[in-house]
Design a protein around this nucleic acid. Structure first.
Lengths: 338, 338
DNA sequence: CTGAAAGCGCTAACAC
DNA sequence: GTGTTAGCGCTTTCAG
């Protein structure tokens, strides 16, 4: 391994000067800077982060904390896109991204221990409620955090404006004349589930529509399978007074719900209109193409990185603690006039 | 920050002993071991990787190299699932997973420089051909590598058996009586594209079927949009002699191709049968549900981790350089008798 | 079984 | 402008 000592020797200067050259100290003379760079180039020198971090206490390392349950986490198209953008933005600032784990060597460890072990300067939180306590420990430890999935007290949050999106979807259905609008909610343990459900109730209220409990189905997990189950249940429990439209809180669930509804002999949108939420890539290839609420995951990922790094570097910000990214209704073919 | 010195003082022993305790040296007396653990527990001690790595030269760090072009990389459902499993398996062995980037602090760097900078012990390769030279540099540097996407000389590879999968798909169509089988290939710059296309030709040959160039469409990128374009082109160029079945080398492309074919007035499977490849989660929610070739991404991810860590730890292996994971045909509703 | 001491590669005062 | 020196937190001989 090439070190600054090797370079110092060949460049005819001290290790300290080499270090300074690499850290762009203005005091280093132009000519010695060049000499140093020349030599290190020829030796194929790369600085060693571990040594650097040991003295500076700066690791340039950010952790990401994702659920690892099947179907969740980075496997989920929503999060993978956020992660991708988060990673790219972090890199631009010079920070590297590491998966937080529960393992140190061959020992089980807590998330917090792992974060400390690696000297993570900040952590992106994208965990479900299944591990709140552990996550709360990380937050309480003082490590800088930003969340893109759940809401924790005092932790900056970058999430799509779920209320806005829900209202956009429902307003659209309302304009098409729908008054009997059902709702298939995603798990109410999630912010997405709660806020979309809350906005649904708010909307009905604001329009003076009655809240029919039979029109509301709550799913247990974020998964395709749930959609079929929910659709079956919905149709069953209001067979005598079917809704004319369904607002489904999550595209992935909408896909399977649609397919189930169709297999029960209903036409979409002629018999029942459907609006989803998320605008997953495939929603346009459903038949009919799904009308849904788009959320801007690229912006979420990038902005989460911006905020986290602001925090890490103690930069002032004017952003609110809870930042909401505007949504947009994407109209396709899954809705018709009532 | 709590260090071994703090612990040594309180536990009434030397820092060296603390270190030994934490590294499970058998020479440490049971009672002092307990004392050390007790104290470090109460102080909330966590060892510091940077210091550790500096002396041991072992970072317990593995890099993952993914394409960052839109639609590729971890955003791609295929890779995100591989990555998820790779990460989980690596953690079990005590290795942490870091994204390789092209940035060191605020300086642009090569992948190799970044790997050296972070002291990565191994790298998972999942890059497209757009950056072969850079990837080749990493490989040549001696850093241990395993590929799940492309094939590089002397680099262990864990990929699904694309030939097997293709043959399964085509054999099935053949049994249904299809003789005019078209092929929409994914980019031939990829192993997936080449091998599936190659197996397609091999199959036609083996059955004594004529290769009709009009029945073959090559797409340029892995994306939904390509599917529509390819479908339009295919239908156009063999309007007077349509195929009765299409083998589409990639589900994502199949989704949009199907939707385009249907919008042109053809029924699937009555007029045209379709088989895809990959068994993406959503293939069962297409209408009709897509018959496709399943590849076992969980196994690929896990096995890639196993192999990489074997390499890192110089463990002997009996695995071939190029490991192929068996595929399975998943029969749904997109094919009918010819 | 335990401890002293050297050193991993680098940075940061402080002298010069 | 440049060099000397100490030290970051840990592991690892080697004595004892």
């Amino acid at each position: 391994m090439v070190t600054i000592y090797d370079i110092a020797k060949l460049a005819g200067c001290s290790p300290a000067t080499v270090s300074k050259a690499f850290n762009n100290y203005s005091s280093v003379k132009e000519s010695t800077y060049k000499k140093v760079m020349e030599v290190s180039e020829s030796l194929g020198y790369t600085p060693n982060t571990n040594a650097r971090a040991l003295t500076t206490k700066k690791t340039w390392l950010i952790g990401v904390l994702f659920s690892e349950d099947t179907g969740a986490g980075i496997t989920h198209p929503h999060f993978s896109e956020i992660l991708q953008n988060f990673k790219m933005r972090s890199s631009e600032y010079g920070y590297d991204v590491l998966f937080v784990s529960k393992q140190i060597g061959n020992k089980e460890a807590s998330y917090l221990e792992h974060c400390k072990y690696r000297g993570l300067e900040g952590v992106l939180l994208a965990m479900d409620r299944n591990h709140v306590d552990e996550v709360q420990n990380v937050i309480s430890s003082g490590i800088k955090c930003v969340s893109v999935e759940d809401i924790y007290p005092d932790v900056p949050t970058v999430i799509a404006d779920y209320r806005m999106g829900t209202l956009q979807a429902l307003e659209y259905l309302y304009l098409l004349g729908h008054r009997k609008i059902a709702h298939i909610a995603c798990p109410l343990t999630s912010v997405a589930g709660r806020e979309r459900y809350g906005a649904y109730l708010e909307f009905l209220n604001s329009k003076g529509l009655e809240v029919n409990p039979k029109y509301i189905i709550e799913t247990d997990v974020f998964s395709h399978e749930e959609g079929s189950k929910a659709a079956v249940k919905l149709l069953q429990q209001c067979w005598d007074d079917l809704p004319t439209a369904i607002f489904i809180a999550y595209d992935d669930i909408a896909f399977s719900a649609m397919s189930t509804i169709q297999s029960q002999g209903f036409r979409i949108p002629e018999d029942i209109s459907v609006v989803g939420f998320d605008n997953l890539k495939l929603s346009c290839y459903m038949s009919p193409a799904l009308t849904t609420v788009h959320q801007d995951r690229a912006t979420i990922g990038r902005m989460a990185a911006d905020r986290l790094i602001q925090l890490i570097e103690n930069k002032p910000t004017e952003d609110a603690l809870d930042v909401r990214i505007p949504t947009k209704l994407i109209v396709r073919n899954s809705c018709a006039r009532a």
